[in-house]
Amino acid sequence: MIEIKDLHKSYKMGSNSLHVLKGINFTAEAGELVAIMGSSGSGKSTLLNILGMLDGADSGEYILDGVPIKDLTETKAAQYRNKFLGFVFQSFNLINYKSALENVALPLYYQKVARKERQEKALNYLDRVGLKEWATHLPSELSGGQKQRVAIARAMAAEPKVLLADEPTGALDSKTSYEVMDLIQKINDDGNTILVVTHEEDIAHMCKRIVHLKDGVIVEDKKIEQVRAEQYV
């Protein structure tokens, strides 16, 4: 599903150049649930941004679902993001003047889905994350866990190939963290490919595979026994 070969990325900081990713090779099959771990500055967020086409790599190959991702114009990138990827952010990033339902419907709007169908689909996804009754509420009226569930519903609404989660539990207490992870596991059980960036060990162990990043290289890549979040909820 995801194939990365010899990926390099450096940032210019004034006259200095900061080499963040120093040749990453990484493959993820369809249906995998991968945790990307590393301390801050290890390059894990940069990697996720490149995977999410929010940022371009300096060199190396990136193939997503058989499509080589390179030389993207902003228009093309927006198209691919909409078609291939769903994002879940640490700070939820819901649009705060839109209701939960409208937030979930947003990616469908960009796919030019008709209004009625959009609403139906969005409601369906809200139902899946257990927030059907909250559809008309604004983000400010929801709790942190609920917001993240809306964000996940939004990410799933466009039926992406890959779900990218950047510290999805970073702003949540452990109980709601487990609820969110439970949801992510269930989505993964349905066969969706998910990449989770985290620095929390317990969250990482709820995935099926852990990739350790340190100073811009992968130092460890192992399959693990998944811990189900259900038992903590």
């Binding site: 228009t75 927006a78 198209q79 993001r81 078609k83 994002f87 990033n93 649009i95 947003l106």
Partner: peptide, 14 residues
């Protein structure tokens, strides 16, 4: 930020 979110969700620059 909102524009950023919209772009991430796939809104075209145009």
């Amino acid at each position: 930020k909102e524009i950023g979110i919209r772009r991430a969700l796939g809104e075209q620059p145009m």
